[in-house]
Design a protein around this nucleic acid. Structure first.
Lengths: 215, 215
DNA sequence: GTTAGCATGTAAGGAGTTACATGATTTT
DNA sequence: AAAATCATGTAACTCCTTACATGCTAAC
């Protein structure tokens, strides 16, 4: 299981850690947490969920199903057969197991170069509240240096290109890329400072996501 | 050849349109123009280049090779054997063919939903100087509405999450995502306005990238 | 009654990464 | 002499998308 694939797994575990969910709902949340415009396909999600069940990180549970939208029990009255709140269809709800929580904690501790990749960073950040302070810091700093490397390369290209012929659109794109990257670096720098001063106040605080430290 | 794959092809054609290049150099430029932190691998690039040669869009040309760095002919003097500027190694330089220019023009005209995807948009924008004004406008507007859809979804989630428990990191991520997206929308709106006022001044201006309109 | 949204899946295929392999040249 | 950078490539593998298939419920 390579780095990139762990992003999806981490995101799923993190979302299910907050609340059990069925696939369709999960997909919508994933599309937000992963920070991409492009939507994740079911062809990726469902086979992955089945795989995670096989691994023992999550379990299926037939949903009792809340009412589809709003709290009303369908004002037309018909199909009130299904007692409380009409179920739409089968709906398989997934829940995290104790092993799944352990796995989540393990993935959370992974602060390697993969964690400062474009999509992966956002997922890690989304679960920072449950991440070790030192791991948080490593990820923030890794991301910052990655962005600064990129920034340096764009600036170099920008200087070279502006000297030669001028393509206003290409120049505008570079300008905008530089500005966006600078802004994100600034954001990261502030977060890093906040982390450092927090570390000075509270000493070591262990990862609260392994089931051994919970319950 | 599906939408996503066309991005790489478009980027390669566009870069080679400016100047012939060899693979290694091309990769560096591609990493910039595609707007990703993650680097494109050679395992993707070289087979793709070979494929494009087979299609007739580009041709290989053994490089006469300029001197590696700076203009100096290696101050140590040794290996001055290779006449002007020492060639590093084989170095296969790629050049655009007339068919390649046509192909570039065709891809440039493609303003479908794929063009407002995350990575693809940047590539298209980078070559806007050679894109038809109406196509430019469609791409900018498509991108804007895509971003606004996403923005609406994040805002919805943000309101719901802030109401319930508060996870400061998750909230901060949402805040930052919203701000970034808003900023990009604003940028796009200004570009769209600029396009419209430009369109009012100069009427129809044909795509100058098909070889039929060149030479 | 028909469209749109909810909900779950499968099969085939394509694109891209990883890891490996090679070798020249430049810098330290 | 070693390490870094330049430069090109291949094979195996993984992940993901696309397109298809099914069926239920809500709204128009």
């Amino acid at each position: 299981m390579s780095r990139r694939s762990e992003m999806l797994e981490l995101a799923i575990l993190g979302l299910l850690h907050d609340a059990p969910m069925h696939g369709y709902e999960l997909r919508k949340q994933l599309n937000l947490v992963m920070g991409t415009v492009r939507a994740l396909s079911y062809g990726t999600l469902y086979p992955r969920l089945r795989d995670m069940v096989r691994q023992g990180w999550i379990v299926e549970a037939e949903s009792v199903a809340a009412s589809p939208r709003g709290a009303r029990t369908s004002r037309s009255g018909r199909s009130s057969a299904r007692a409380l709140g009409g179920s739409r269809r089968t709906r398989i709800t997934y829940e995290l197991t104790a092993d799944g929580k352990d796995r989540f904690g393990d993935l959370l501790d992974q602060a390697g170069p993969a964690a400062w990749e474009d999509g992966v960073f956002d997922v890690h950040f989304a679960f920072f509240a449950r991440t070790n302070p030192d791991v948080r810091l490593r990820i923030l700093e890794g991301r910052r240096s990655r962005l600064e490397e990129r920034l340096a390369r764009i600036r170099e290209l920008d200087a070279a290109s502006n000297a030669r012929r001028r393509d206003s659109y290409a120049a505008e794109l570079r300008r905008h890329s530089i500005e966006s990257a600078e802004r994100e670096v600034h954001w990261l720098v502030e977060l890093i400072e906040a982390e450092r001063s927090r570390a000075a106040t509270q000493p070591s605080d262990d990862n609260p996501n392994h089931s051994s430290t919970e319950t």
